[in-house]
Design a protein around this nucleic acid. Sequence first.
DNA 1: TAACATGGTTTCCTCTGGGTAACCGTGCCC
DNA 2: GGGCACGGTTACCCAGAGGAAACCATGTTA
Lengths: 121, 121
Amino acid sequence: MEYAYDVYENRCPTRLVLDRLADKWALLILDRLQEEPVRFNQLKRDIKGISQKVLSQTLKKLERDGLLSRQVFATVPVTVEYSLTELGATLNESVSALAHWAEHNMDAVLAAQTEYDSREQ
Amino acid sequence: MEYAYDVYENRCPTRLVLDRLADKWALLILDRLQEEPVRFNQLKRDIKGISQKVLSQTLKKLERDGLLSRQVFATVPVTVEYSLTELGATLNESVSALAHWAEHNMDAVLAAQTEYDSREQ
DNA sequence: TAACATGGTTTCCTCTGGGTAACCGTGCCC
DNA sequence: GGGCACGGTTACCCAGAGGAAACCATGTTA
């Protein structure tokens, strides 16, 4: 089957989507939401090192792209829950694999780096 | 099984690897190399819009991490071929899925964006 | 002799991504 | 009244990513 879009093309709109997905913070957010809906400050605590501003921006963009949804509960203080949409869930396996690949292969990567650095001092 | 690394931790070395992988150009390069080894200028032609500098930098980093290897042939002019290592090939499925996801779901994304923008003018 | 191809490196410059930190509104408790 | 928690937004500022373009060596062809 042929698609109308080609991510290898410079001005293809899929490039914009790839740019959004190919982002450390976006991947970690999508990965974290796989298990369950998570609130803003919980995400901020779990994804260590992300700033409030970037978390907020990234969530907004992912929501706009239809990958996750935002639900507000009228508690006090207000509760906001983020969860994957069906569309977002189609990325689950790939996101997990990519996000956690380094955890499983860190030693091989470190060995490769050491070898590379020793080759060309 | 427990791993020594946790990508959710701020200073975990896996964060550096994730940062390398979570990059539009790196994903497109890794995707393109799945079929066959490819030469520098061929990559530059295929991945439309990438600059020579960024292609060169990204290839070097991916080689250093052990994801791809660089082979020089003493032709005239010199031929340089890039190919996936075994380590790099372990990412094949996830890289393809992520890189081409937008091609299969672009219409849903566009619809979500339109709906989002109409909600909060 | 000049142009072309490969596979880069280097310089320059711009622009924006992202960090820090302050601020906001609401409503609870003390 | 003051402080806190939640879920943000906004202003400010700076480093660094990345584009453009020039330069490099080699050797072949025209």
